[in-house]
Design a protein around this nucleic acid. Structure first.
Length: 315
DNA sequence: CCACGATCCTGCTAGC
DNA sequence: TGCTAGCAGGATCGTG
């Protein structure tokens, strides 16, 4: 599934080849829902004759800017690929949108599962409204420990679900969320408000690290992801937890587990990423009682207070 | 406001 | 061998 690193890799490929090209034809739409807020005719009327000036990315959205401040937004969702082909390229199955340029280059949106979407923006203001309604901050440029701390404040949801929420943080999907939580040694079921300052710092660093490495490796070709030049990424050879159920954790050797969180799979190491569920009521009191002398028979189990780790064996 | 389940899609896989 | 049921999952929408 294309997430931030895959979309960024595609944006870089497209940028190198599209800027300066003039849109010449629009077609190939066999699936109207591909264009939820526009039509093939409108795209043609608005873009044909205009040169590409910018190729950008925001979250998982690919943004192609044209003269006159017109913009095309592409979201690949699960299985979509944005490919560049020569004008005489053979028909490709599952093509749902095509944009031809004056030098013969053909931009093709190919998506087996038909989840992908194409948007048209009449101005950068329109584009910004659309983005602002949907996306939180950019992890690589707008995220650090203090900002993440503010973002987590007042949130009680599970970490994994929050990371998948694009309005919370843009660009992270299932794969990189699992990888980031593993690097940060945080259990996916931990609640947002349970993190210490140290843990928040680890998480902010981990998110940026896994995304940066993903980009350096030109993305993860776990299922059918290809960049615009049809080349697969390399990051699938470097995954620590995602898709590695029951294989050994690279850090401790114990088997990776997989659970479902809100109908999404979550991969993690139950040993490195400790279970979040401390005994429900004693938590608050236990922290305050910690300074008081304990009954000698009761040995602090983890000695670090969070406790109740052994109940994790089911996760 | 916030959390969460259902929904959209189709290729692939497991199971019979 | 051939069939089918179930799974995968990003974003949106509806509900509690």
């Amino acid at each position: 599934m294309p997430e931030l690193p895959e979309v960024e890799t595609t944006a870089r490929s497209l940028r190198a080849r599209l800027i300066g090209l003039r849109a010449q034809c629009v077609g190939g739409v066999d699936w109207p829902r591909m264009l939820p807020q526009t039509t093939e005719d409108e795209v043609r009327a608005l873009l044909v004759g205009l040169c590409v000036t910018v190729v950008d990315r925001r979250g998982k959205y690919l943004l192609i800017g044209f003269e006159d401040d017109r913009w095309l937004g592409l979201h690949r969702k699960m299985s979509g690929n944005v490919l560049l082909r020569p004008s005489d390229a053979a028909h490709e199955a599952h093509t749902h949108f095509e944009l031809g340029f004056d030098d013969g280059t053909l931009l093709r949106f190919v998506d087996v599962r038909k989840f992908g979407r194409v948007y048209l923006f009449h101005s950068s203001a329109d584009r910004d409204i659309f983005i602002a309604e949907r996306l939180g901050p950019e992890p690589l440029t707008e995220l650090d420990a203090p900002s993440l701390r503010r973002m987590l404040q007042g949130r009680r949801g599970r970490l994994k679900s929050l990371l998948l929420d694009q309005a919370f943080l843009a660009g992270v999907g299932n794969l990189y969320a699992d990888e980031a939580l593993w690097v940060a040694r945080l259990h996916p079921l931990r609640t947002a408000d349970s993190l210490s300052a140290r843990e928040i710092g680890r998480l902010a660093t981990a998110i940026k690290e896994v995304l940066t490495l993903g980009i350096e490796r030109r993305g993860t070709s776990f299922s059918n992801y290809r960049d615009a030049d049809d080349t697969p990424g390399d990051n699938q050879h470097h995954l620590n937890v995602y898709g590695r159920e029951s294989q050994p954790c690279p850090r401790c050797g114990r088997p990776i587990r997989r659970i479902l969180i809100g109908a999404r799979s979550a991969h993690f190491c139950a040993s490195c990423q400790r279970s979040p569920s401390p005994p429900p009521s004693p938590v608050r009191g236990a922290r305050e009682l910690r300074v008081e002398p304990r009954p000698s028979g009761e040995r602090p189990r983890g000695a670090r207070g969070r406790g109740a780790v052994q109940a994790a064996s089911n996760f």
